[in-house]
Amino acid sequence: MKDTATESTTRPRNPVRGALASFDALTLTCAGVLALLTLAAVAGPLAGVGGDPTAIVGPRLAPPSAEYPLGTDSLGRSLLPRVIEGVGTTLVVSAVAVLCTAVISTAGGIVAGYHGGAVNGVVMRIGDVLYAFPAIILAILVASVVGPGRTAALVSIVLVTVPLMTRMVGAAARLVCVRDYVTAARISGVSAPRIMVRHVLTNVSGTVAVQTTYALSVAILVEGGLSFLGYGVQLPASSLGLLIQEGTVYMVKAPWALLAPSVILVLAIVAINVIGDSLRDRFEPRKARSL
């Protein structure tokens, strides 16, 4: 993808600014929201914003005040550092899981798309079996096998997101593999792995980027659901799902404990989906599909 505009305009342009300017304001705002959340999750604990997330510091279920900007929870822990830690946990677990998904699905999808026929059939049927399980049932199954915790959340996210992403990458790879340049490469004696990397991977990278983004929003949702049910991240650590679950208990007496993590969860998912849609419009103008 070369920016041809740089050649024709008289004024030399900053390529980063040029790339940013090509997205609309909504997408940029959403990217900003995500960047802010990530920054808070990374810098917050380092700078000690709001104090120790596990220390009991004040009265129980205190409303937001200057001392406790988001109030306190049922044990008297300040909610601000807990929310910051929760955002971090959720983002890290989701990001690591989605990275695994991206690697597995891209490799699986390209191999299936390249070989077609029986190989494609086997890969897609494995995907179908996984896809047939409702996400949360699959997650509970995983948690009962490996034990509740981060690992369970991670494995569950991978299992939930892999089938659809493999399918999408496989379909895109299939289209690329019937192109004349792939046939020409095969006739020239270029090896299959080389074709998959040089020709197929480079041409499905847009689909991979889009589907990875959508997978991330699903991942955050699955992590939240699993922690909410008590199968994900365990106390005294915190994650968005865990905080929401705690918040629901005292929803009437202390709605702020539920509000803050819920709003952040919604913001994060909406932001990621908007970015995903924008990437999709850019990379796959005619294929309107989402995870």
């Binding site: 004349d180 340049y181 020409a184 006739i187 480079t202 041409n203």
Partner: peptide, 14 residues
């Protein structure tokens, strides 16, 4: 070797 049909898809755009 071969020279194939469609000039649009005969070369890898990337």
């Amino acid at each position: 070797q071969a020279v194939l049909q469609n000039p649009h898809w005969s070369l890898n755009p990337r």
